Amino acid sequence: MQIFVKTLTGKTITLEVEPSDTIENVKAKIQDKEGIPPDQQRLIFAGKQLEDGRTLSDYNIQKESTLHLVLR
């Protein structure tokens, strides 16, 4: 499924993921596309910060959901 990741600069990254993918996994995909190390990434969905060990389905993230990427 496709999800979108919006950065603070207003750029939107499109990722191909599975509901069973972990947040860690998603961060690795963002690193592949954008070169941002996962340890600098914070992903936010519905106002919650997403934890590395959880999966997209844990957070009920469905196709075409938009996550927000904050760098630390």
Rank of each mutant, 00 (worst) to 15 (best):
A46V: 11
T9W: 04
L43W: 02
L8Q: 10
G35S: 05
E64L: 04
G53T: 15
G35C: 03
V17I: 12
I61V: 10
G35K: 12
I61D: 00
S57M: 06
V26G: 00
A28F: 13
N25V: 11
P37S: 11
T7F: 14
L71D: 15
Y59C: 02
I3F: 01
E18R: 10
L50H: 00
L69E: 01
Q31R: 15
G10T: 14
T9C: 03
E24M: 05
Q40I: 09
P19R: 10
L71A: 11
K48D: 13
K63F: 10
L56Y: 00
M1G: 06
S65D: 15
I23E: 01
L71N: 13
S20L: 15
I13F: 15
K63G: 13
K6W: 10
R72H: 14
K6A: 13
E24P: 09
N60G: 06
T9Q: 09
R72P: 13
V70K: 08
G53H: 13
D52Q: 02
N60W: 07
K48H: 14
E34R: 01
E24K: 05
S65Q: 13
E24L: 08
E16Q: 14
K63P: 13
E24I: 05
T22I: 11
G10V: 10
T55K: 08
K27E: 01
N60L: 14
L43K: 00
T55D: 06
Y59A: 03
F45T: 09
K6P: 01
T9S: 14
T22W: 15
D52W: 05
D58H: 07
D21T: 09
L43T: 01
K63L: 09
E18L: 04
R42I: 15
L67M: 08
G10H: 12
E18Y: 12
N60D: 09
D32Y: 12
Q31S: 11
F4M: 14
R72T: 14
D39R: 14
N60M: 04
R42W: 11
D21P: 00
E34Y: 04
G53E: 12
S20E: 07
Q41C: 02
L15F: 09
R54M: 09
V17A: 13
S20C: 02
P37K: 08
K63C: 02
Q40K: 03
Q62V: 06
A46C: 03
